[in-house]
Nucleic acid binder design. Structure first.
Length: 293
DNA sequence: AGGGGGACCTGTGCGC
DNA sequence: TGCGCACAGGTCCCCC
């Protein structure tokens, strides 16, 4: 259930397993996820070596030794499981997997893609809802790929500045909540971290985007940067534990200030407000009406 | 042209 | 225990 910090956590977990390894064998266990796999998906991956594993927004990009790029997205429910070369089982769901039988990992109902690497490691992509995707592109034309071409700035990058937001939000009559979820402006923010960033910036999710410029866009820029960086750090620390214990990648516990806390007391110092849940463009927004204006 | 709402899927948790 | 409903961290596409 990944937003950008989870995707980055997954990337960091997969990087040492995948990079430098040859893909010996690939099982593609159904024809499609969110949309069909490329027709020659398995044959184009087999025998390739992974040279790098990068991330753009919520996409993971595996660069292969023939110039191809494997584009992967986790959707809402995508996970990766790893079986280490020594056979150490690393699946989280004990009802489905028995760690005494790591070879069974990849046999689950929602295990759609299985990579077997030259060093004996196995990497499994599991995605119950199948909103994720895998496809292939070329390194040279990657930026023009339809999935990536229109994407906005990274939330932790230097390109995210108050000025950038001022320009992007000028004349926008949509609520700031919706504008922040627009991947063409900032790429990689999802529902949770938009709620969290707006809380730390003290901005109501209902406020119109065009009313942000000024003090608020400075606070918002800082809040986005900080909330994402902190979540990546938290993912990084939980990742260390996970990899040693069960190896599940794609999910970590995180403390949220407002998300999922409807009816609870606002955590801001000295605020007596109560977290409220409203629905905006079909999705839940959590906020404190008292300190978010 | 931009933005809201539905569509795509399965699983889970809750109230009755 | 079972059923039906609401809801879930994403994104695309269509229509107004």
């Amino acid at each position: 259930m990944p937003e950008l910090p989870e995707v980055e956590t997954v990337r960091r977990g997969l990087e040492p397993v995948l990079v430098g390894q040859q893909i010996k064998h690939v099982q593609q266990r159904r024809a499609d996820l969110r949309f069909p796999f490329p027709p020659d998906f398995v044959s184009r991956l087999k025998g390739r070596k992974v040279e790098a594993l990068r991330r753009r927004a919520k996409y993971m990009l595996a660069e292969l030794d023939d110039g191809a790029v494997l584009i992967m997205h986790l959707g809402m429910s995508g996970r990766f499981y790893i079986v280490a070369p020594n056979g150490q089982a690393t699946a989280p769901d004990t009802r489905v997997y028995d760690s005494a039988h790591p070879e069974e990992i990849g046999e689950g109902k929602h295990d759609h893609v299985v990579f077997d690497l030259a060093n004996g490691a196995r990497v499994v992509y599991c995605d119950p809802r199948r909103f994720g995707l895998m496809t292939l592109s070329d390194r040279d034309s990657l930026e023009d790929h339809p999935l990536l071409a229109a994407m906005g700035v990274e939330p932790t990058g230097n390109a995210l500045t108050p000025d950038y937001l001022n320009t992007a939000f000028r004349d926008k009559k949509t609520p700031i909540k919706a504008a922040l979820l627009d991947q063409r402006i900032i790429a990689g923010l999802g529902n949770i971290y938009v709620c969290e960033a707006l809380f730390y910036a003290g901005i109501s999710p209902k406020r119109l985007a065009k009313s942000i410029p000024g003090k608020r866009s400075a606070r918002l820029t800082e809040a986005i940067r900080t909330v994402i960086r902190r979540a990546i750090e938290a993912g990084g620390s939980s990742l260390r534990d996970y990899v040693q214990t069960d190896g599940e990648l794609g999910y970590f516990q995180h403390e949220f200030a407002v998300y999922g806390r409807e009816g609870e007391k606002c955590v801001a110092k000295g605020c007596s407000g109560m977290v409220k849940r409203i629905v905006q463009s079909g999705r839940s927004s959590f906020y404190c009406p008292k300190c978010q204006r």
